[in-house]
Simulated assay, not measured.
Amino acid sequence: MIEITNKYLRLSTQNEAATRCIINDILFALLDTVVPYPNNGQWPLNLQMETSLTSPKGTCDYTLWYGDKGGADKAINLVLVEAKKLGLASQGDDQALGYMACVHQERRTQPSQNSTVYGLSTDGEEFRFLRINERSEFTKVIMTKTPGGNYSRITSMIAFIMREAVSQSSYTSRNTSKDVSMEDDPVTLPPDV
């Protein structure tokens, strides 16, 4: 889908809407691969676009969450994407970090909940993965698609984050014992040069 999207956007203005086309292709394909929709209708992970957050006040382009819609147990694992115009990926870092810090702080008030939160700022070519861990330490890893348009390293990172979100959901803890180890977290790697 990314190849098809890029083919038809190649001469178009590279704006935030074009970036979102690429992000949509990646996220929906990965969601369907990493956490396929179960036959019993119980879905452990959800993608929300244009999520309104109250503290800080704003709208996050995408969030990945589990729990009941609007329910008290709704938990945001990934304040996912701040999509930006081509060449402006870094401009989403502060906005994403602000949202992440609020989610992280809220989760720290609940001792039984993992407070690690992930974020991503991207222009569809540069992907700036952000993480605040349990100890409130910040890490950033920057990846770019390969010149040939290969997104495999990027999709592997997003897939890891999705698996981590599923492993934390109450659905998964009730239905499987397979958890993702935080020791394998690729966001702990030093940033790409």
Rank of each mutant, 00 (worst) to 15 (best):
I2Y: 05
I2G: 03
E3Q: 14
T5L: 14
N6A: 07
N6R: 14
L11G: 12
T13S: 13
Q14P: 04
N15P: 12
N15T: 10
A17D: 12
A18L: 14
A18H: 12
R20G: 07
C21H: 03
C21W: 02
I23K: 04
F28I: 04
F28V: 09
F28E: 08
L30K: 04
D32R: 13
T33E: 15
V35N: 02
G41E: 06
W43V: 15
W43R: 15
L45H: 03
M49Q: 12
M49Y: 06
E50S: 07
S52F: 11
S52Q: 14
T54E: 08
T54L: 10
T54A: 09
S55A: 11
S55P: 02
T59Q: 10
T59A: 05
L64S: 07
W65Y: 15
Y66N: 03
Y66P: 01
D68V: 12
D68N: 06
A72H: 10
A72M: 11
K74R: 10
A75S: 12
A75H: 07
N77K: 10
L78Q: 12
V81S: 08
V81Q: 03
E82A: 15
A83Y: 01
A83C: 05
L86P: 02
L86R: 09
G87K: 09
L88E: 06
Q91D: 02
G92L: 07
D93H: 03
L97C: 11
Y99W: 09
M100H: 03
A101R: 09
C102A: 15
V103I: 06
E106L: 08
R107D: 02
R108M: 10
R108F: 01
T109G: 03
Q110K: 11
Q110P: 03
Q110C: 07
S112M: 03
Q113L: 03
Q113P: 03
T116C: 09
V117K: 04
V117R: 05
V117E: 04
Y118D: 11
S121Y: 05
D123K: 13
G124I: 06
E125N: 12
F127D: 13
R128E: 08
L130M: 13
R131K: 15
R131G: 04
N133D: 15
N133E: 05
R135W: 08
I142R: 14
I142K: 15
M143L: 14
T144M: 09
T146R: 12
P147E: 05
G148F: 06
G149Q: 09
N150Y: 04
Y151W: 14
Y151Q: 11
T155K: 07
S156L: 11
Q168H: 00
S169E: 00
S173G: 01
T176P: 01
S177L: 02
S177E: 00
S177Y: 00
S177W: 01
S177C: 00
K178D: 00
K178Q: 00
V180M: 01
S181F: 01
E183F: 01
D185P: 02
V187H: 02
T188L: 14
P190Q: 12
P190C: 13
P190A: 15
V193N: 13
